[in-house]
Design a protein around this nucleic acid. Structure first.
Lengths: 341, 341
DNA sequence: CCAAATCTGATGTACGTAAATCAAAATTTG
DNA sequence: CAAATTTTGATTTACGTACATCAGATTTGG
């Protein structure tokens, strides 16, 4: 049988009330007594029954998700997953609130973060915009003892407790190797479509992609990055233009959102050419394009896993509990035609 | 606030005791009264607080994992993950026992399953051997109300509640497409190394592999399957032999275990040839081979996820709770050099 | 219509922890 | 050394559910 608070009291030779004071760091316990209790806890290997504790406390975990107000499939999907998690709130004792902030706007994000520090939620998950002032705001929250996890896009150098997202450098490298291998040593140009070089995840994907292409596939040359702002219309225009002008393009890497426009451009301009195309994020559009052969592979991060992982980690941190690292690692999904979910 | 049993009692105009009798399907409630209570439950949207219920019951979930006594890295890994889960037992209220049965031995498996039906554990997870008598034994357990999930290898046609493993046909198809694309239209022979055609997962992988190769890469011809019994020594011998005799081999698909032997054979016999190799299961050996270029891609199923998923599902089924389907889907990991964990 | 059988209500205890109250003991301070 | 202060103990209630007991009510069969 698992030891209880009573066992601690007996082992330490103190009363239940004192054990409670120590466990919940309430004042009114002499240093020596506190140590006696702490030793007893260690010796008998007591683990707090979180379920019982939460029941007694009537505890819920107020969590806040801060998402960018971007109008693309991926962010919609992410939003849906947060909503789905919120629907499970009563069972999971969470109370999830979503805040939308303008995309690519560090100041707005900082403002929201600072306001949250007043309300002291049990935890905060945010899609980070990579800027020094955001880093500082996050560090302030962490210093205040509020668990913070970054979602999808990390904030390197900050004190955030955890990052629930994929390794974007690895993603870019993987894309490069897939593209290189699929092209089988052919010589030609590669077009790269990104959202914006101002977001860290896109920069990292590009970095990885360029590195592996240069190292291992020297016959491929990467054209200057096309920045489509994750906007289908813009992506369509820019890609169509590039395909018209450059006849040497044999491959495309789309590392951001706005793939709807890319796919349209490919269908218009490249029916006769056999381009090899790798894109990010599995959506209805990219899925169809993968199935009809317009796209050759899709790299994906599972928004549902990211959201659930963020919640698990935030709850664990709020309770000072350990997390299962392997479980919280967000994997890069590689989809070919054959292994679509 | 979330409704409680008291709210049901008030809403239905009955006593707490009657509500309890209905909720826990105890006898002594007239049909009309039962319906009144059930309606109230539905109307106020009552959800049982599982944590409180488990606390009151002092409930633990005795779970049994039945694993084949195979001496390969994957099964060792699976075993370790079960042990790791068992170590978390006190926190998760589980009581996990592992039973080892001889591999590929339906009779032994059936015997164990039938014995378990006496002990009535909260749930059973098994690596299924594909045979009619096993199917029947599983169906008997399910009929008895014991939750059963298959692990790694499914038991199609049985009544098992869930399968915690990858889609092996999709895995085979994916391997074929990767291999075909990596080979870029070259003409030649493909060697396939399997454990045994008596296990369903291997059969399915082969089936998927053959289908896609035939459909989409007609320039590749698949040699008769080499059955290495998941044994490194045997695999080494057979593969070395094949490589010596067949100079037309340009690719290898290893769909089972025993990759240690395969890798050794490749290093001995194919240093001068540029073979494209795809293997299953990420182990220390295959990882090293991927990094040094001996293997080009690894398809993997994450044993840790499979075990944790099986536990979650078994607990949920034992409580009659729903599962998050997307969360329990075991994904096929594709590893290249660049996205290794 | 009455006894027997069946159903329902009222009540109390338990699970492991949190949190509060009040009394008693120990310690510190003047 | 007494008073003030701090520390500790004892006890109670609560969280939401499970489960048992016993008394009272209702229904059923003869």
């Amino acid at each position: 049988m698992r030891p209880t608070v009573h066992d601690i009291a007996a082992a330490a030779g103190v009363s239940l009330a004192t054990v409670d004071r120590v466990l919940n760091q309430r004042p009114g316990v002499r240093h020596v007594t506190r140590e006696k209790v702490e030793n007893a806890i260690r010796e008998i290997g007591y683990i707090r029954d979180v379920a019982a504790a939460n029941l007694a406390k009537g505890r819920t975990y107020p969590l806040v998700f801060i998402l960018p107000a971007s109008d693309n499939s991926f962010m919609h999907g992410l939003n849906n997953e947060v909503r789905a998690a919120a629907a499970r709130s009563s069972v999971e004792r969470t109370d999830i609130r979503t805040l939308e902030v303008p995309a690519f706007d560090p100041a707005a994000l900082v403002k929201v973060l600072d306001e949250l520090s007043e309300q002291r939620p049990s935890g905060i998950a945010l899609v980070a915009t990579d800027a020094p002032e955001v880093r500082e705001a996050v560090d302030r929250l962490v210093k205040d003892g509020i668990p913070v996890v970054t979602l999808v896009s990390d904030l390197t150098g900050s004190q955030r407790h955890h990052y629930a997202g994929v390794d974007n450098i690895a993603a870019g490298r993987t894309a490069a190797r897939l593209l290189g291998r699929f092209l089988g040593g052919a010589k030609g140009e590669i077009a790269v479509l990104a959202g914006s070089m101002l977001v860290r995840d896109h920069r990292e994907r590009l970095e990885g992609f360029v590195a592996v292409t240069a190292e291992e596939f020297p016959s491929l040359s990467i054209l200057p990055v096309i920045e489509g702002r994750d906007d289908p219309e813009m992506a369509h225009m820019l890609v169509a233009d590039a395909l018209s002008k450059k006849s040497g393009i044999i491959g495309v890497y789309s590392l951001g959102a706005g793939n709807r426009g890319l796919i349209r451009a490919l269908k218009e301009k490249a029916v006769d050419r056999s381009l090899t195309v790798i894109a990010h994020e599995l959506t209805a559009h990219t899925r169809a394009a993968l199935l009809d052969g317009t796209i050759d592979a899709i790299l994906n991060q599972d928004a549902g896993h990211e959201v659930r992982s963020a919640i698990r980690v935030l709850k664990a941190k709020a309770d000072g509990l350990p997390v299962i690292a392997a479980q919280e690692r967000i994997r890069l999904d590689i989809f070919l035609k054959d292994n679509l979910p």
